[in-house]
Design a protein around this nucleic acid. Structure first.
Lengths: 186, 186, 186, 186
DNA sequence: CATGAATGAGTGTTCATTCAT
DNA sequence: AATGAATGAACACTCATTCAT
């Protein structure tokens, strides 16, 4: 089962959820069709299982967000968190790709993902709120913008080795630090 | 043909590119399968045509970006441009959703989209460069981050009426203005 | 469509409903898999269509039953009706075979068939009732017994050419005539 | 093994032979797939074993038929035999349901059942022959008709409690007694 | 130009059967 | 003797694409 989950991540990563055939997955996992349906009742079910996995990891993320002590605007802590977020996000990139038209496949799974992201946005919004939101910054919108940026950034820089460069990390940190927490007065 | 293009946008919007069958499109367009293949040699071909449409509109975007006179950091101009970007992006949202695993379907179309986005990032990076990039900001990374943020933001806020709220627009403007163009010194 | 219906009757006759693969049917009908699903949404749907056909013919049967003029016990009329019943039943034999475990496949179709048979039994029971049921004969039970006998008789005599012999027809007529309508006093 | 045989009867009764999966049987029997194949080499083999069971019981039936002393037309003896037949038949109803398209599954098992029924018809035909068959009655056809009637009757009356009612039993007795053994002269 | 019935390769899913433990 | 995870051949069904009208 672990083998199948891992194999499906590999397959989804290289071909995307829709284009991946059950066949691709079982070939990578070196099992048979039958085994696949022993553990998952269908392709959709596999997706749900994968999301469950992701949720566990993601909860660590907003735990981290809340645990940030001292000033939230601390550049160092922010930078570390962004790095952590990026690493995790990269790992589940194949899934986030599937989001978009997941609705058509499985409304419940889509809602599940939605809730996950929403929780993340909420946690971040609270953090911004707590920092005393500057003028021109609406906490929830800002939190959404940050998650949006981080989510998408990696897909746009095809970091071949999957590692985000230190310069990029600095840049992201600067944008969030100065843009969200310490903007110049309008 | 126009009818087919429009119909496909509607269909993609509601079911996603992958889940949309030719059947869905021709039903919305109130034509027949035969007619579809009269205008497009296949489903990929339709996608390419749609992307061509988008490209024309998008070129206006980076034209606007270059045409910005005076200070690039002008809050007003920035705000207007973001609004313009959002409106356009929303229009082509169904397409951007398809990006992610388009590779598996049509490598050429994927490359085309890639080029389009790349051009946008380039134009923005030049603009940042021209403004004399502040410390802690790497122009290309920053440009990528901005596009990433704007691209994804709308998908995450399910703006029911399709309009971005003034508060959200302000927030985005503040983040980019202060985060990218006028960050506080680290 | 007609071709598919006919082909399926042939296929069901030779292999039974369950053992018949869609493949068998389309091979006999000389069409493709796709065509099958153009006209029927699945194998079950085909069965329902077949039953609809049967129902139309069957209604003629109890029409005939009610139309019997003069004495119901008239040996000649009874004999003619049995012959008619047998001919019709033979035609739909492949379907009646499917009854038994049809419940597992399609509860609605099974109920439909049930209603059809029930109507036949009702019509016959009325006829017996009208004739003034003799002692030792409960009309509904007798009607059921007659339908049961006629239904099963043909399956048990594997009339290779499908024709019921005159001797057999005489025997059935005698049993029903004397057994149901004119029994000796107990 | 007994558990498996009993379980299969329950399963066949509720879902029909074809729709019953090995899985259903072993679940009811509370054993494993492996155990099933320890006792039966395959699903057909199980069916054959079940038929063997039935044969032993059935032989009692035509034993009873031959043992009838005195007048075969004796209403009382006939009635008793019909009751016995019905009880036995009910027990094996799930199997008789499978007859019809058993050919497609297992030719040998089908032939076995055929022989069993044939033996029953033969015994009854002899009995009719011995009674000096009346005019309008062909012994073999009459015997077949009787078996057909009894076989099918129970399936058509969904006797909820599984018991045939006294009225129904009387009616069947009357039909056979008067219809087969003592018909009115044509 | 337009149609829509026909096609069949491709895919998801089931389930009887095996075999290492 | 008993288990139940693993197998893969077989099957139902879908949908992009074609072509005679």
């Amino acid at each position: 089962m672990r083998r199948l989950l891992d194999a499906s991540m590999i397959a989804f990563a290289s071909r995307g959820y829709h284009a991946t055939r059950v066949n691709d997955i079982v070939e990578i996992a070196k099992t048979s069709h039958g085994t696949f349906y022993l553990y998952f009742s269908n392709k959709e079910d596999l997706l749900r299982a994968l999301i469950d996995d992701a949720r566990n990891d993601a909860s660590a993320l907003y735990g981290a967000l809340r645990a940030v002590k001292g000033e939230p605007e601390s550049r160092e802590e922010l930078r570390a968190w962004i790095a952590q977020f990026s690493a995790l996000w990269r790992r589940y990139a194949p899934l986030t790709s599937a989001w978009t038209d997941m609705d058509a496949v499985d409304v419940e799974a889509a809602a599940e993902v939605r809730r996950l992201v929403e929780a993340l946005i909420d946690a971040l919004a609270q953090r911004i709120e707590a920092a005393g939101p500057p003028e021109g910054i609406e906490p929830r919108a800002a939190a959404t913008a940050v998650i949006a940026m981080l989510d998408r950034f990696q897909a746009l820089t095809d970091a071949t080795d999957g590692q985000i460069t230190p310069e990029a990390l600095d840049t992201l940190t600067t944008i969030i630090h100065s843009g969200v927490f310490h903007p110049a007065a309008p």
